[in-house]
Design a binder for these strands. Structure first.
Lengths: 233, 233
DNA sequence: CTCAAGCGAGAGCAGTGCTCTCGCTTGAGA
DNA sequence: TCTCAAGCGAGAGCACTGCTCTCGCTTGAG
């Protein structure tokens, strides 16, 4: 009853995804600011007003693209993780980070859409939350596995951070030590900081061998979360 | 001969900075994408075409704002650093990072302009490089001081990173150990990763006490660069 | 004192997001 | 099986954008 809807509904789905595809094409070519509803409609052989039957505004189209981008990134990361399921936690951590970086380099404008400055005047609706969490949850899963098997190193935290750490850990991962949860959230932001700096040109004329640099840096970040050294299991 | 120019030149400077001021106002209010040359001109009581006598295009206006923003951030960081010149390196490191975060929270749209996704289709000219480096150089100075006085901890790097590390160190800070230079560049990106995540809403419903969280996180990053613990000199 | 350079005003072009109205089509319910 | 409202595309139009070009006034350097 969900797939075998009427022809009308099926056509609507097709047109909707054709619009998103073309929009994604233009996004990849020229970036979000130059994404034009009229140009999308033109390319699809329809008139611009017809497009508003599918997306009530340009921002809604962008939101759809954002969710798709989060999902695409999440899927890339999860695929990469599945491919190294049998190695140690730190290696898996690095593999996931490298997958995220690779995805970002392949689709810079989509990355900018989700981790760059949000489109001005626009607040991401809660709809995006689940898709946005996938990479973070994946990284957390790695740390959780490590915690259960080989254990994780715990760095003591200052007293002033204790309330926030406990609250954050209770919300996020009650089974992990609060110290680790805090470090994990920070690590998550730091990994994307590295990706963003590379992508947005801050490393120009500074870092040359960016792949090696990234691998080493995220490996140290992973170590900072408490993951063990590559040599160990 | 540079300040006492003709009245024409002085007027030009005044009008130019009036344009930038009004543009900055609109930028702060609505973000970069909604910054409109026509609206700026309107507000200044001039016609839009007249504005092109001062900035050849909208992108050039944005570039001017970008440089000013880098300088403003750099100045905020340097002022904060000067205010704690007599404390230990790690404390100074944290103070500079907190100043950068504070500046970003106070001027989110300007921060987005320089560390968020670059305005699409637009490549920052080399003009911006010196202004853009100020915070990085400041952080490097702190590590250099620490290296000269109390010394910095050196984390060994893998062999595959050795060439890049040596090249990077030679370019950036020949007086610092290559291991430290690499860690410093990564730390630089990681600090701004934390700021960006907070500013762009990634920490919504995740981190509550963001100030404490940030202070702890950048302190750990500083420690990762080799700075000593707060207790020590 | 002069005359070119600097400047502001205005009209105009091509493009944008978005709205509204008009008819055609189509499929679900009587 | 027939009908009629809902869904849809087309077109015109509004208010806005960045940018160009031409026209005259002003002004300050030679």
């Amino acid at each position: 009853m969900s797939t075998a809807q009427g022809a009308r509904a099926r056509a609507r789905i097709e047109v909707t995804s054709a619009i998103k595809d073309e929009a994604r094409r233009q996004l990849a070519a020229d970036g979000a600011a130059k994404l034009s509803l009229r140009a999308v409609a033109r390319e699809l052989g329809m008139v611009s007003s017809a497009l508003y039957r599918y997306f009530p505004s340009r921002d809604d189209l962008l939101t759809a693209l954002i969710i798709d981008a989060y999902d695409s990134l999440g899927e890339a990361a999860e695929t990469a993780h599945a491919a190294v399921a049998d190695v140690g936690p730190l290696r898996r951590w690095v593999a996931v980070c490298e997958a995220a970086r690779g995805w970002a380099l392949r689709r810079p404008h989509e990355y900018a859409l989700i981790y760059g400055s949000p489109v001005p005047g626009y607040q991401a609706p809660d709809t995006t939350v689940p898709a946005a969490s996938r990479v973070g949850l994946l990284l957390m899963g790695i740390v959780r596995d490590a915690h259960r098997s080989v254990g994780v190193a715990r760095t003591p935290i200052p007293a002033e951070l204790r309330p926030e750490a406990d609250r954050l850990a209770a919300d996020l991962a009650p089974d992990l030590p609060a110290e680790v949860s805090v470090a994990l959230v920070a690590a998550w932001a730091q990994v994307f900081g590295l990706i963003g700096f590379e992508l947005f040109g801050q490393f120009n004329r500074v870092v040359e061998d960016r792949e090696t640099f990234f691998r080493y840096s995220v490996s140290r970040i992973g170590h900072g979360v408490g993951l063990v050294f590559p040599g160990n299991p």
